[in-house]
């Protein structure tokens, strides 16, 4: 068994602080997505509510924003933010900052669309029957609409978090030191002594990402079933 572990280059994990370093790298990626989520949720809720507003101009502007963000690969957005702003505005922002900005912009757009979807999915008769009961529009929202919207929204927003975490793997491409970068460094340092280190380390990164996302998707699935 130990032979196999060595053979596959998994032993490198237990040398020095390698495994801790990988975890640290994962944490850098996760923290970027968590900060972005924390920004996206409130902004997304505002955007979603605005998207159901009566003003056509607001709706059109937000729609265009959503479509632009959606149609571009996130990596292109990262490139635009990281390389483009330096050149166009002379900003010198770090890879981390660029990532957080891009993911927050993207998250806000996606969250906004989820909120909009949840709001319009509430059938009209729900509004009508609460009005018929004599509720004010504030009461209608507070007691009838928001509780129903939240139930539809929470599983979908949790899914958005896993998407966000998966997407943070891209920050490697604009030079942020995260788990894949750490993996590359470890592989580089151990290539001579342990030729198969790439297999073991990348497998570990693979498993780490899975362990970060899977429980969250399970939770989303569970809540979706429970509330549907």
């Amino acid at each position: 068994m130990p032979d196999l572990v060595t053979e596959l280059g998994i032993d490198v994990l237990f040398k020095g602080t390698n495994f801790l370093r990988l975890l640290g790298g994962l944490w850098s990626a996760l923290s970027i997505s968590l900060i972005a989520v924390a920004i996206s949720i409130p902004l997304g809720i505002i955007m979603g509510v605005l998207m159901t507003s009566k003003s056509r101009i607001i709706k059109a502007i937000l729609r265009v924003y959503l479509e632009i963000i959606r149609i571009m690969p996130q990596l292109v957005l990262l490139f635009l933010m990281f390389f483009g702003t330096t050149r166009a505005f002379g900003w010198d922002i770090s890879g981390e900052t660029a990532s957080i900005i891009v993911f927050a912009l993207w998250g806000t757009a996606e969250m906004g669309d989820l909120v909009r979807g949840a709001l319009i999915s509430i059938p009209k008769h729900q509004y009508e029957s609460s009005e018929a009961l004599g509720m004010t529009s504030a009461q209608t929202y507070l007691y009838i609409i928001i509780p129903q919207t939240v139930r539809r929204l929470i599983p979908l927003s949790i899914n958005l978090i896993t998407r966000m975490i998966k997407t943070t793997s891209l920050v490697l491409m604009i030079g942020v030191v995260e788990v894949l970068k750490v993996a590359q460094q470890i592989i580089e340092a151990n290539r001579m002594t342990s030729p198969n280190v790439a297999f073991g380390i990348y497998l570990t990164v693979f498993v780490l990402y899975f362990l970060a996302c899977w429980p969250i998707s399970l939770l989303a699935k569970y809540l979706e079933k429970k509330w549907s």
Binding site: S169, L180, F210
Partner: peptide, 8 residues
């Protein structure tokens, strides 16, 4: 579904 393409 729970791992990024880049890592795959």
């Amino acid at each position: 579904r729970n791992t990024p393409l880049l890592v795959q």
